[in-house]
């Protein structure tokens, strides 16, 4: 029973949504809106699951003084304090919460994102070696596209930006579309497996 009830819910609702995408009628759209309202109402409750997990994991670390437990203290203190600041002084601009957001959260995310530049550089350095004929093609294409991005490319020859556009528009898109078709089918297949109850891992456990 523990498995069957969720399965029944999934299969019925699943087919209803498949039908919804083919039926433009008001009844169908009203059903969808009603469902969306419920999603909006229910999903915030899941936040508490996340917070509980966070407390459990880091609480255990602190309690057992597992190595680096101090970081856990900072994590929890950050969580509690940010939430407290939000509840206490509100989230308008000028409040401590917004101050934290603008001066801690924003620059830290930007920093993490900026790391990409370095990582891309080192990944490119390692990856682009003319080890074989295919790798050489990849290497040349990469250099043309990179040159096409910068004014230097256009200064060398006007064909560089044009070839760069061609590479992006033709071979790149061809490969990408092929992968996308495969992904689309894979998604459909997985959805179908779920709808038919073949795939049940998401209910917890294999079978």
């Amino acid at each position: 029973m523990k498995r069957q009830i969720p399965l029944i819910i999934i299969i019925t609702l699943g087919f209803m949504f498949v039908a919804h995408s083919f039926i433009p009628h008001k009844i169908s759209t009203d059903f969808f809106d009603w469902y969306q309202d419920w999603v909006k109402a229910v999903s915030p409750f899941a936040v508490s699951l996340g917070i509980m997990s966070l407390f459990m994991v880091h609480g255990t670390k602190i309690k057992r003084k597992i190595s680096n437990w101090q970081y856990s203290v900072i994590t929890l203190a950050g969580l509690v304090f940010t939430a407290f600041a939000g509840f206490m002084w509100g989230t308008q601009s000028g409040t401590p919460y917004m101050w934290l957001f603008e001066n801690v959260q924003m620059p830290m995310s930007a920093t993490m994102f900026a790391l990409l530049a370095f990582y891309i550089a080192s990944a490119a350095y390692k990856a682009f070696r003319a080890r074989s004929a295919e790798a050489t093609v990849l290497l040349i294409a990469a250099i043309i596209v990179m040159l096409g991005q910068v004014p230097l490319g256009a200064m060398i020859s006007k064909w560089i930006p044009e070839s760069s556009t061609w590479i992006l528009n033709v071979p790149n898109l061809a490969a990408k579309r092929a992968i996308m078709i495969g992904v689309g089918l894979g998604m459909t297949a997985t959805s179908l497996k779920i709808l038919l109850g073949i795939e049940r891992t998401y209910l917890g456990g294999g079978d």
Binding site: L49, G50, I51, S53, L54, V57, G204, G205, G206
Partner: peptide
């Protein structure tokens, strides 16, 4: 999160090793 937790827990049961399952191994 809860789904992943359930998946990992169930896997340990299936493998016959419920004792080695640490519920904090799946975390948010």
């Amino acid at each position: 999160l809860p789904i992943a937790q359930e998946v990992v827990k169930e896997a340990h049961y299936e493998a016959g090793r419920p004792d080695s399952h640490d519920k904090n191994s799946v975390f948010f």
